[in-house]
Design a protein around this nucleic acid. Structure first.
Lengths: 240, 240
DNA sequence: AAGTGGTCTAGACCACTTC
DNA sequence: AAGTGGTCTAGACCACTTC
């Protein structure tokens, strides 16, 4: 583990265990340098990371403070952090759930104009089109519509689509996933989606439209995920 | 403007103007040091900021790259970035809209248990309860339910509530707003909300539940904002 | 006046990519 | 072997807060 990760994870443990309490001032950066035997910049990087996930706030000329009431926000198991991108399988397995997928469509097509634009692809290129219902412990949670250029993600098989496409991209192809741009909306399900997700009437969905990027900047995925509304929420930390 | 801001904003301009194109490699960090006459850490801070808003990705041992197709994501005017927190008024005035508010309720009450918990307050404390319909250019966009402890935000008047509570907190009280924890969900409107927002039947809302924090870590605001679904979306950048 | 976090420097070392 | 971004150091200076 890197030095700043050691500092950040130790501070995090002390905050979550209540050793540093809500609204309390943390040791100064100079003190933390002595405590952990590291330089100022290393401590700074650790506190920036904690501020980024919303655990502390820092105040110039004054000190660093533990935020009040972070518990409910961080502990919510039905929540995904907007800052993290792990893929459906990794995310739910981390919570101890067994993940399965019903593959409704797995085909290769020419992309519609909107999909082509998002993938920086041409209408003449081939892309996979995948429709999946994804379940955790047998409960249908989300319908995912995924498009990927076959030129970037070659050799995708039904077995990959049934388990985890991200695993095929990272382990199988040796590519590195960097980040994603997401747009979140509230929508109503189609009749088909209502049936697949087993929804009561008048249940809205949370739609997450996403463009995923590799670490060389290329978009490798365009997807629309429509999440069962009463079983899903989305967490974010906003800075002023 | 700070040095790293100068570098970041210059790089951003060159990317958005197309001088550095999608999927293209940026100058190396060492080259940028020479170009801008700054140290490595300063360039690094600038590239980290750009990676944070999803404009570039960096690849160890290889280089920094402009992300493909960032245009649509960054230009969408109906979108709020999850990473930013400006308040409704500042956000929409930036887009050139005239912001008004219909104050439906403005009272002082003892908080319900859930509100008290979020505000780290006691059931015996007094909090403002404010219900507002907020409009941009006369179009109702969102219903906001806001709770704030009177001990932290004293002297709030109807005039503040009608324009901007954040202005009163920052300019009037000299407090500094640091950040907010947000939870986003899809919900159906109540009949009252449907009327206030002028919604067609079967239109869902995007609910943003938020706890706002001052820079000393104290929660000063608990609010639930329910956004008209077809006129609102929420942008985020997720890191792998 | 003393203490605090934020920015910035020159330079070292490392792991990884590219050739 | 050469080039690249990522981490880390010791130290300087500054703006701001606190007393």
């Amino acid at each position: 583990m890197l030095k700043y990760e050691v500092v950040a994870s130790d501070l995090r443990n002390r905050i979550e265990s209540g050793q540093y309490k809500a609204n309390e001032q943390l040791p100064t950066i100079a003190e933390m340098c002595k405590i952990y035997g590291v330089s100022e910049i290393t401590v700074k990087k650790a506190t920036e990371q904690l501020a980024g996930i919303g655990l502390i706030s820092t105040r110039k000329g004054s000190g660093s403070y533990v935020k009040g009431d972070v518990g409910a926000f961080l502990r919510d198991p039905s929540a995904e952090m907007s800052g993290q991108m792990a893929g459906f399988k990794a995310e739910h397995e981390q919570l101890g759930a067994e993940v399965t997928s019903l593959v409704k469509t797995f085909e290769v097509i020419h992309p519609e104009p909107e999909v082509a634009e998002r993938l920086s692809a041409d209408a003449a290129d081939f892309v996979y089109r995948i429709v999946r219902v994804r379940l955790a412990d047998g409960m249908p949670l989300v319908v995912e519509y995924t498009y990927m250029p076959i030129s970037i993600v070659p050799g995708l098989r039904l077995a990959d689509v049934e388990s985890s496409i991200y695993e095929h991209i990272e382990q199988g192809l040796g590519l590195r996933i960097d980040s994603a741009h997401r747009i979140v909306r509230a929508v109503m399900p189609t009749p088909q989606e209502r049936e697949w997700l087993g929804l009561a009437p008048d249940t809205p969905l949370l739609e997450v439209e996403q463009v995923g990027f590799l670490d060389d900047g290329r978009p490798f995925e365009y997807s629309v995920a429509r999440h069962s509304g009463d079983r899903y929420s989305f967490h974010a930390v906003a800075k002023h």
